[in-house]
């Protein structure tokens, strides 16, 4: 009877937290109760950068993380953080469910973790306190808080905005007082962080669809029998379907919640945003293997 500890930065009830719990239940059934999973939600064991390291040390068994937290450590995964690499949720799913998804999962081996499955993280869009964003011109001079990630910073710069560093906990009061104009995130985070209260304009430019990934420590993985490894992979794959249901439900719920708070949501013509991404692709897609990967993703149906 082994209890595996897993970390998640999101609160209890969030689709990723529930998905890992579902993974644990499936795993427990498949292994006749030999393995179960306990989720430490709400970043109790540290922020994602810390918990990735802890998974590498082997002090944490499992981890559900945003691929963005790996930065550029896994070049194949970096490709999925490129703005507009995915055309739609369907395209996102068909790429990650197919051979390209397997290829990217396998690439995590070189950072001492074994990646088991991709989860949905939704589409990220800009929100701000001033006006609806309809074209890159509306972003000119706008102070937008982004995560500490080179791609995010370069993306905002390419659109003409002012990418502004700020700790996540200060974003609410930052927007309220006007230190920054806004930030960017998916529906659920826009809702749960309360940012919809102060930044009323949510513009669906959907610049990023960054996958979430479930990883297991290499230390733990190497201690499993080959039969159990198969069961772990099966359980992870099966939990993906559940996570997508949870995610879809959460998005609907969050959208309703932010609308109730008075948020104005506008559709955006993405063409000029996509056209502005040239420099970002030039900077991050340099070697031939990555260029090939990008081309194959873009050629995937969906």
């Amino acid at each position: 009877q082994t209890v595996l500890r897993s970390s998640d930065t999101h609160p209890d009830g969030y689709p990723t937290v529930e998905a890992v719990k579902a993974f644990g239940a499936l795993l427990s059934t498949k292994t006749d109760g030999r393995y179960s999973v306990e989720v430490f939600h709400s970043a109790q064991l540290g922020e994602e950068k810390d918990t990735i390291e802890q998974t590498q040390f082997g002090v944490l068994d499992l981890n559900r993380i945003s691929i963005g937290a790996f930065g550029t450590q896994v070049p194949e995964a970096t490709v999925t953080q490129l703005p507009y690499i995915f055309r739609s949720a369907d395209h996102f799913h068909s790429v990650l469910d197919g051979p390209i998804g397997e290829e990217i999962l396998a690439a995590f081996d070189k950072v001492d973790v074994v990646a088991l499955a991709f989860y949905d993280g939704g589409a990220r869009s800009f929100y701000n306190s001033g006006k609806p964003i309809n074209s890159p011109a509306d972003l000119a001079g706008m102070k937008l808080r982004v995560m500490q990630s080179d791609i995010f910073v370069d993306m905002v710069a390419a659109l003409g905005g002012n990418a502004t560093p700020m700790p996540y906990g200060e974003v609410y009061s930052g927007i309220q007082t006007g230190v920054i104009d806004g930030a960017e995130n998916n529906y659920p985070s826009y809702d749960t962080a309360g940012h919809a209260e102060v930044a009323k304009f949510y513009s669906l430019d959907e610049h990023l669809m960054v996958p979430e990934v479930l990883v297991i420590s290499k230390v733990v993985w190497d201690g499993l029998t080959p039969e159990d490894q198969v069961l772990f992979r099966e359980a992870a794959k099966e939990s993906v379907a559940k996570q997508r249901e949870f995610w879809a439900a959460k998005e609907v719920q969050s959208k309703a919640a932010v609308e109730a708070l008075g948020a104005t949501i506008n559709e955006v013509d993405k063409k000029p945003f996509i056209d502005a991404m040239g420099p970002v692709y030039e900077k991050y897609v340099t070697d031939p293997a990555l260029k090939d990967l990008v081309a194959r993703i873009q050629a995937t149906e969906g």
Binding site: G141, K143, Q148, V153, A163, P165, M166, P167, V179
Partner: peptide, 14 residues
């Protein structure tokens, strides 16, 4: 840089 020039350097926080 943020308030006067409106061009935040990305590296200052880290």
């Amino acid at each position: 840089m943020r308030f006067v020039i409106n061009a935040s350097p990305a590296w200052t926080e880290a």
